[in-house]
Structures are given as structure tokens and as C-alpha cells.
Amino acid sequence: MSDAAPQAALLETMKKAADVLHRAGIPFALAGGCAAYARGGAPSVHDVDFAIREKDADAAAQAFAAGGMTAQRPPEGWLLKAFDGEHMVDLIYRLGGEPVTGELLGRAEELEVAACRMPVLSATDLVLSWLRSLSEHYADFTVPLSFVRPMREQVDWDLVRQETAGLPFARAFLVLLEGLGVIGAAGTAGGPASPDYLAGRIERALAEDPRTHELGICVTVEQGVVYLRGEAAGERRCQLIEDVARQAAPGLLIRNEVSVIEVQPPRTQEAGA
């Protein structure tokens, strides 16, 4: 049996749900795999996700009930599930742990999906929603990889790096994307990788940042890893050098090989010795 029939049925459910939300005047945006599809991805849709604000959840549940689709709040506490026969729609109000806000929905763009126009989350917000969902219990890179590839040029990767700098799984995924050549190194916005520009930017930051003012640190970027080499006058300065470099290259791995200068006593042997 081909996949085409269930795909088509899911897309029908998507359109129906979008219509319900639209008629009820509830702000929403398409998310998940359907949004990836709307932004150029493969039509391998397994579920239908919409982002809504939490405060609209009750109104959404009523609207779905009125539209003949049952809706319920599962115990997860971050979404509402609506059922269109055997097909399910997730109405998500915490996306990757972050609350869905009016600003997030405001950044969505009207796109045509399966012959129907509807708001679709911005490419950057979509990528962020996937990267923020990665965890020890869900570290599958295959699905987000298939989503990200076709839409890489729509994404503000510098912003993604900044927003996910503290998330190890997201950073690992970005390293993978760089290694696969899906995106360039930080600062290249998905263009051709140019580690030289990045190294230059970090060197400038180290020289100009009031925390460091370090001119002699050699910065190289290899395979998405930033290497810092040289000497500094104290331990704390080595740490500050790393901090400033990390800020200048958010999301990249930093290898700090800067060492502290050891000061030996002067030579004091006497004349004729």
C-alpha cells in the first residue's frame, strides 16, 4: 500500500483544523513536519502540529468540538489533542519548552500548503523548536535533519546558534550540520563555510572587548571547532579569553589552549661565575 493515501488524509485533517482555528479567530501557525513540508520539505508527514497560545487553548477546544472534532488535554501539560476520526492534531502551546507567544505567531508567514494558505512558523523558529526538543530521551537527528536540509537558506543560523548556545544536544546537531556541509561555520549564515572570517571576528573581539584586550591570541577554526592558542598573564584572563570567544562564536565548540606565562627569577650569578 502506498504512503500517498494516508499523507493526503493527514493533509486534509491539517486543512480542516486550520479552518476551525481560522473561523474561531484563534491566532495560530503551522508547526512540525507539516511546516517543514510547507517550507519545501518532503511530504512525509506523520502528524499535524499547530502552535497556539496557552490562553487560547480552551477556546480552541470548544471550536474543535463545535466543528465535530473531539479535543482533550493530555497530561503532558504543553498541548491539546484534537481528533478528526483516526487522525490526530496537536495544538501545542509550549514549543520545545518555550511558551508560544503572540510574537512567535506574529513572525509566521502565510504560505500555501496543499492548496490552502495558512500561517506557517518562521524557518528560524521552526528549527529552534526542533533543536530545543532534543534531549537524552529524544536525540534522534534523522528527522530534524530531513526537515532542515531543504529549508536551510530560510534560517537565521547565527540566531539559532545564539539561542541554543547552552543546549549541548542542539550544539551537537549544529556541528553535524556543519560537518555535512548543510550550513557554514558561524557567521556565514548558511553560505559557504569561511572559518577565516570567523577567526578574524574572534581575534577582533579578543582585542577589542574590554574584558580581554588580548592581541596575541592565535585563533583558528577547524571542522567547526574554534582553537585558541597563546599565552596570557593569568588564569582568569585565560577564562575571559574563552568567554569572549564563545560569545563571538555562539554554538561552536571552543578548545582553549591558552596557557599562563610562568615568570622565572632573574639570573643572579655573580660576575666571573
Binding site: 596575541g216 599565552e231 606565562i261 610562568e262 615568570v263 622565572q264 627569577p265 632573574p266 639570573r267
Partner: peptide, 11 residues
Amino acid sequence: ALPVLRRAYAV
């Protein structure tokens, strides 16, 4: 330069 000398001073 201290990083060159690696000692407190040269004479």
C-alpha cells in the same frame, strides 16, 4: 617582553 624573557627581568 616578559613572554620572551620568561623571567622577571634581563640585565
